[in-house]
Design a protein around this nucleic acid. Structure first.
Length: 529
DNA sequence: CGGATTTGACCCGCGC
DNA sequence: GCGCGGGTCAAATCCG
């Protein structure tokens, strides 16, 4: 994991306003800075000044011009210059024309601060939009790559095979073929003749198609008419169409896998639903086999036909544990309070997808060798498990389990035990990364790690009442670790190592506090003691 | 009255 | 082919 420290400066030269991001990577021990110049056209140009990033030609100065497609309007009417950061980040602004009247100066400064706050809010909103767009684009790229990969594979493996029969058994043929690729349990593909589906990689469209397909399925069998129509084609046309059809199938398979990948979150809660910031509408409830508690079905109502659904059910063994299973990706912008949980489930699902595509080059989808049994994840061994034994690949984030062997870990209360374990695990991971121990299991080295900060945020979002207690506990944990480390290192080297540890533990503290502050602004007065 | 929830019916995939 | 279980729909009902 990359641990970074950022500082941020804004400046203005004759032609452009610029934003300087100074960055230190604690793991690499190097620093570099990037200058982002925002032009009048709203586009950005990134200039890494000798910062260790080299382009293909080996040039140290890598310039990257980004066409954002956004007409960024950056206010340029600030009449001030900036001083370097002093005293731990307190920014001092000084007006060009020194006003002897202190009150006027204060008023002007307040006005500037207010203006900057507004601008900051606007930029935050913009950043949210850009982030959402970025995620959508990533999904599209992923889909297109998979599309290309599967297209090559389809042509190579089944160069002449016709996927349609004249006896109307296309469905069975498809099933068998997908079964060859996926194994019997993974061949959960929606193939109800929806071959008219556009190849547009826009996932939200495909989600809608999927929903419509489901709706059609439940209302009757009218969609089978498409098969009948196709079956009336001559054989040679069917053969030509079969490659395209195979491609569409492969793409559908991937899309459905993306949609069907599930993220399950276990959290202790007495409430019937954990608050994750989204709006949900209940559309069904059923008694599931083997569980005395009903399973409730919800769909997201924050966007038009948002495909995201979730199931909520109490654990059969422990009534206090609420199991929330998310499926799908939101097709709309999210409120800030929803982002922790969504980013967690998204990264977990991405990890599931990435892992499922990784190990076996012959298998574009699930890799049974990894997921045939519940599998602990590297880095978060008791926190997250992957399983494909269920009909859909599922990753489970367990926010309830106590973990670790740190006997110094204080327990806040019974409810907090799981979060304590979680935080301990996260901090342990950060600590290991900083201090270079616990090399990840190579067997899973191709699996991306779940972002621990997102998970921690999700944990806090699931039980915000614990934020305060958690903040105190984190501080004491880190302080304990810090003291312990200081002692050890003082034995090795009494001089010059304070800075090293201060950076390491300081970043842990900052991260932990930031997590808490992000989830509970009321705790913004937490100090790093 | 409109939106949310409840609940019985229905559909589908899967195993036998 | 049949039964089972999971998931969804939609009419009925509830609620603010």
């Amino acid at each position: 994991m990359k641990m970074e420290c950022h500082s941020y400066e804004i400046g203005d030269d004759d032609e452009h306003q610029w934003h300087m991001v100074k960055e230190m990577d604690f793991l690499q021990g190097s620093t570099f800075s990037s200058k982002v110049v925002v032009g009048e056209d709203g586009n950005m140009e990134v200039d890494n000044n000798g910062g260790g990033i080299r382009d293909d030609n080996g040039d140290d100065d890598l310039k990257l011009k980004i066409d954002t497609g956004l007409k960024l309007q950056v206010a340029t009417d600030f009449d001030f210059v900036e001083k370097p950061m002093v005293n731990g980040g307190v920014e001092v602004m000084k007006l060009h024309d020194e006003n002897p009247n202190a009150k006027d100066e204060m008023a002007v400064l307040k006005e500037e601060i207010a203006r900057k706050s507004v601008e900051n809010q606007r930029l935050k909103t913009l950043l949210d939009q850009v982030t959402s767009s970025h995620q959508a684009l990533q999904m599209q790229i992923l889909t297109i790559r998979q599309h290309q990969h599967d297209q090559n594979k389809s042509i190579k493996v089944h160069p002449t095979e016709t996927l349609m029969n004249n006896d109307g058994t296309m469905k069975e043929r498809k099933k068998q073929q997908m079964g060859q690729f996926l194994g019997p349990r993974q061949a959960i593909i929606n193939i109800d003749g929806d071959d008219q589906r556009s190849s547009n990689p826009n996932l939200s469209e495909n989600y809608r198609d999927d929903q419509n397909s489901n709706r059609n399925r439940s209302r009757g069998r009218e969609d089978h008419g498409a098969i009948t129509t196709k079956n009336s084609m001559p054989n040679n046309m069917q053969r030509v169409g079969s490659i395209a059809s195979a491609t569409v199938q492969a793409q559908e398979a991937h899309e459905v896998t993306m949609r069907k990948a599930r993220v399950s979150v276990r959290a202790r809660s007495e409430a019937n639903m954990i608050s994750d910031g989204c709006q949900w509408r209940k559309y069904g409830q059923k008694m599931a086999k083997g569980n005395p508690w009903p399973r409730a079905y919800y769909r997201c109502t924050m966007g038009d036909s948002c495909p995201v659904r979730k199931q909520v059910q109490r654990c059969a063994d422990d009534r206090s544990v609420l199991i929330t299973t998310y499926e799908g990706h939101h097709n709309h912008s999210l409120p800030p309070e929803a982002k922790p949980m969504v980013s967690t489930t998204t990264s977990a699902a991405s990890m599931l997808i990435a892992g499922s595509k990784s190990s076996n080059p012959m298998d574009g989808l699930l890799c049974p060798s990894i997921f045939s049994q519940p599998t602990a994840l590297p880095g978060l061994p008791s926190l997250a498990t992957i399983s494909a034994s269920a009909p859909f690949p599922t990753i489970t984030l367990d926010l309830t389990r106590p973990h670790g062997n740190n006997t110094n870990m204080p327990n806040v209360n019974t409810n907090g035990l799981g979060l304590m374990g979680l935080m301990q695990q996260l901090l342990g991971q950060v600590h290991n990364n900083i201090h270079g121990s616990n090399e990840p299991n190579r067997e899973y080295s191709n699996l991306p790690l779940i972002d621990p900060i997102s998970i921690a945020k999700a944990a806090l979002a699931s039980d915000p009442n614990l934020a305060s207690a958690l903040a105190t506990t984190i501080s004491s944990i880190i302080k304990g670790n810090f003291d312990s480390h200081n002692n050890n290192n003082n034995n090795n080297n009494n001089s010059n190592n304070n800075s090293v540890h201060n950076s390491g533990n300081g970043s842990e503290i900052s991260m932990a506090n930031q997590i808490v502050k992000d989830n509970n602004p009321d705790l913004s007065n937490i100090t790093e003691n």
